[in-house]
């Protein structure tokens, strides 16, 4: 019997669980990090104005659910908009 090409035995259970959890947000068509970066300023301003970003830019919202790094950058941008606001 041939051995499988890959060996996932080194992957801990927790990582596999997280991977399976991420499948719930997985879609055939997803934005890439570059596509999100191109519009994250527009997205953060819309969120800051209280607009329904989930409806307006659903693919960006979906990417944020899956990409920790993009989500961190978006939240940092939102922090600046909120704390810089003189209102």
């Amino acid at each position: 019997m041939t051995q499988p090409q890959n060996d996932t035995n080194q992957l801990p259970d927790e990582l596999i669980e997280n991977l399976i959890r991420s499948l719930e947000h997985t879609e055939d068509k997803e934005c890439t990090c570059d596509e999100v970066y191109a519009v994250v300023d527009q997205y953060a301003e819309a969120e800051f104005r209280g607009e329904d970003v989930q409806r307006l830019m659903p693919l960006i919202k979906q990417h944020m659910e899956l990409c920790h790094n993009c989500c961190e950058e978006y939240e940092a941008l939102l922090d600046i908009l909120e704390k810089n606001d003189p209102a």
Partner: peptide, 25 residues
């Protein structure tokens, strides 16, 4: 877990597995 590990072995490419190890592990 055994079933999912078998699926991962069969479905993931070497590069995909490497990415999972680097990012997740």
């Amino acid at each position: 877990l055994t079933r999912i590990r078998r699926i991962l072995d069969e479905e993931l490419t070497e590069k995909q597995r490497q990415a999972l190890v680097l990012l997740g592990l």
